[in-house]
Amino acid sequence: MKERKERKESKEREEGKATGEGGRGAARDALQGGRDDPWTAAWEVSRRKAVAVVDCRQEIPCDPCETACRKGAIRVGDDVCALPISEPETCDGCGRCVALCPGMAIYLIDRSADGGKAAVTVPYEMGEEPRAGMEARVVDGEGKELGRGKILEVRAMGGAAATLLVKVEVPETWALKVRGVRLRQMFIEEPEEVEGYRGTGDCLICRCEEIARAEVEKAAGSGFRSLAALRRASRVGLGYCQGRFCREPLREELARKCGRGVEELGIGSPRPPLRPVKISRLGGGDVRDTQF
């Protein structure tokens, strides 16, 4: 059955159809404007040599792939948000872009070996150490396990705190789907169902003074109109942290209660000191003589 699925995907590929989420179709969709589909080209070139596949689909401000490539095979251009364009023919498969892409969204594919196998190189930054010869779980972009693959090679690239490049051998049909290798299987326990949950709906809002939301609501309901007034009425935000953690939720609560916008309530009048300071320090006048 697995084989049949792979055959089907292989057929789709030949027909130029999308190969699933994160596949060529998605890239083509993102790359509008009559530019060449780099995936198609990469796919072809990968028959001869290792080549980078740039799976960058969101126009975010980012260009390290361009500077990473010493061959000039990846271009972002003046618009830092533009999607990168790669030239598979120019790519020498060095893997620097794979290591330096902040999104970890570049891979090398190499189909030059025969026998229906492809070597895919993915970036890796997890704790379990990959070594050549090991078996790893191979996953797609959604984290779905495609199966197992043999690690062919592990190398480090990208500065002092390097990223590992893990080359894994997979069936050729997975070549464009593999997005990562996993060495650890997390024990993700299924969360248990809780029947008939009825919370009180109440909780502390001011951690320091231990004042519950209900108390704040009560004070707000009795007409206090500002954060300062609410503080006076309930001591909310007057504790050790000076409201640094309850200010925002309180303002939202009060705004809701008074039917006003948060912005109308204002930021208040913060007073020094912004951090606790010992009397001995605040009152000290002896400062070591320093040059300013």
């Binding site: 960058c56 984290g143 996993r182």
Partner: peptide
Amino acid sequence: VHLQRVRREG
């Protein structure tokens, strides 16, 4: 890409 990375780890 951040979302993808987290998902890739399961």
